[in-house]
Nucleic acid binder design. Structure first.
Lengths: 161, 161
DNA sequence: GTCATACTACTCGGATAAGAACTGTCCGAGTGGGGTAGG
DNA sequence: CCTACCCCACTCGGACAGTTCTTATCCGAGTAGTATGAC
């Protein structure tokens, strides 16, 4: 069970978009250069975020990506779900249906105790991620490294010409 | 992020081993037949459980697998870890090290706030799985379906000749 | 000088390969039990 | 009848292909700004 590396990229990129000037946008190429990542592949992840309605994209010169809504209303779970898809990590295949006691009219994903335990665990995981917004993350970073927003903006401004 | 299907097989098989008579063992082939699974592949998962010290295996006729310790001392997390490996789902790649503010003497897996959030979520997931033992699971099943242990034993006894 | 127009550079977006991990299968090493021959 | 030995069937264990998912890359559609030429 390995989570896609795109999740990490997406989270850091969204956090980065938190510090973009209002009305501005950041291109996938610049965001990739900031972390030294393959630009085309990061673009793919940003597309997934756009499809999920987390960021908006504008093509053409001076285009790029920006957050679709204020960081207070974007949870870490939103970003993770956008990249990894909505499906659970553990998926009950209905083993018991093929067993000697199996019934066709039972939804084993609901009634099977193994499945219930796994779902309860994933629910706890999800609850933790849903309780953390992009704004919380941003505030944590700004508290630990106060100069980061200004230095980041400056870095992107320097890349422009 | 999709969990290996072997986790489900391993959990159900361990639960099944809970109802084995003391001193007896169940072969991978019989366990596989019980759920209509590919025997060789289930054997592979059981080997992983044996390497983790959750079950013990004995070769030869009348051999097979049995639990290595009482079900009260085997958590669901133990089984999941044995199959999926000890690594976390989210692994911090140290993106910030390649960024303009990156330092070589910092352990970003510890200090990065994104990484911290993800680890906190996985910890909650793990805590939930570690709080559930195989004995709890067994008791739940016996409460819901009281006849299951006897019928299961009977099924395996019938397969013997 | 002003306006319309064509052009160019730049951006996202989806379609297209390479690699890794999971899934599934096979055969060999080792073991325990049962049959058999001898005492 | 009892015992020691040999053979065989059975089981796990690790080595070997097939398939799906993740990772990585490329080129085309569309857009905004700019230069250019006519009025």
């Amino acid at each position: 069970m390995r989570m896609s590396e795109g999740v990490e990229w997406a989270l850091h990129s969204c956090l980065n978009l938190t510090w973009v000037e209002p009305g501005e946008a950041r291109t996938a190429a610049r965001l990739a250069a900031f972390y030294d990542l393959p630009a085309a592949y990061l673009n793919k992840q940003l597309q997934a975020l756009a499809r999920a309605g987390i960021v908006t994209s504008t093509p053409g010169p001076r285009g790029g990506f920006r957050l679709a809504r204020p960081p207070e209303r974007i949870t870490v779970l939103d970003v993770v779900t956008a990249i990894e898809g909505p499906g659970d990590a553990f998926r009950c295949s209905g083993l018991l249906r093929n067993g000697p006691e199996g019934r066709d009219d039972v939804d084993y994903a609901r009634s099977c105790h193994v499945s219930q335990t796994m779902r309860r665990a994933e629910l706890a995981w999800r609850r933790e991620l849903a309780g953390q917004t992009l704004a919380d993350l941003r505030d944590d970073v700004e508290r630990s490294h106060p100069g980061t927003p200004a230095r980041t903006r400056e870095w992107f401004a320097r890349q422009r010409p």
